[in-house]
């Protein structure tokens, strides 16, 4: 039991992509929270609500250009928040999108600065997300690509052939989340020992702390304490 709140998070299986609604009971951060102590108020929200056009800033330009270059790819799930553009990319098309992002003169994202994983156990069928942060030095722009895969089939094509600098980032994401990047030259553990079992930063992996005793009183590890969120 790593996420004390997991029981409160029930999923509604109506979505097709990462727009699934997540239902929460109790206290939450958006809108008026249930601070009555009654705990009977139920509220659902979308983790990644679509943004409608116009996206603003240079974001429309990037999305339009990608649509023009790759008309057959479904790039409709776009989230714009906090001056950041997130494009959800179907994993089968990831390599095409990455190659277009790198090679097209109007996009020209030279660097993939970071690949990291996020685990959403409540998004059924797309529990694991790989998040790519691209940087265009030419145009001084950034874009975030997000790719989802199911826990039961944790495969995503590797970006290393397009962006060699993601080699270690993908190894780390594999090490921590168990996402298998197909086509990676050497997908091995990088931070944990080679014989480690499990993927530590998944939500279903316990924090692994031990109770701490001080002058007779015992404090449980942080993941087993009472929580508010």
């Amino acid at each position: 039991m790593t996420e004390p709140n997991a029981a409160d998070l029930a999923e509604v299986s109506d979505g097709t992509s990462a727009e699934q609604r997540v239902t929460r009971k109790g206290m939450w951060g958006q809108g008026p929270g249930d601070t009555s102590g009654y705990g009977g108020i139920v509220r659902s929200f979308e983790r990644f609500p679509r943004t409608d056009r116009p996206y603003g800033s240079y974001f429309d330009e990037i999305v339009d250009r990608l649509h023009g270059l790759l008309p057959s790819v479904d790039l409709d799930h776009v989230v714009v928040a906090h001056d950041e553009l997130t494009i959800f990319v179907p994993k089968a098309d990831l390599l095409d999108v990455l190659t277009a992002c790198r090679d097209d003169a109007l996009l020209r994202f030279e660097v993939c600065v970071s690949v990291s994983g996020v685990h959403f156990p409540d998004l059924v069928g797309e529990e694991l997300h790989a998040v790519y942060h691209l940087l265009s030095i030419t145009h001084n722009r950034r874009v975030r690509l997000q790719v989802t895969c199911a826990d039961s089939d944790p495969h995503i094509p590797s970006s290393v052939p397009t962006y060699p600098m993601t080699d270690w980032h993908e190894r780390e994401t594999y090490d921590m989340f168990g996402i298998i990047f197909d086509g990676h030259p050497a997908l091995t553990r990088i931070l944990m020992p080679d014989d480690w079992e499990g993927f530590p930063q998944r939500k279903d992996y316990p924090l692994g702390g031990i109770p701490v005793e001080y002058k007779g009183a015992v404090v449980p590890p942080p993941d087993q304490r009472r929580s508010y969120s």
Binding site: M192, P200, P206, L207, G208, G209, I210, V212, P221
Partner: peptide, 10 residues
């Protein structure tokens, strides 16, 4: 001495 603030798997 005690693991300090990092009471975790690593």
């Amino acid at each position: 001495s005690s693991g300090g603030m990092f009471n975790n798997y690593a």
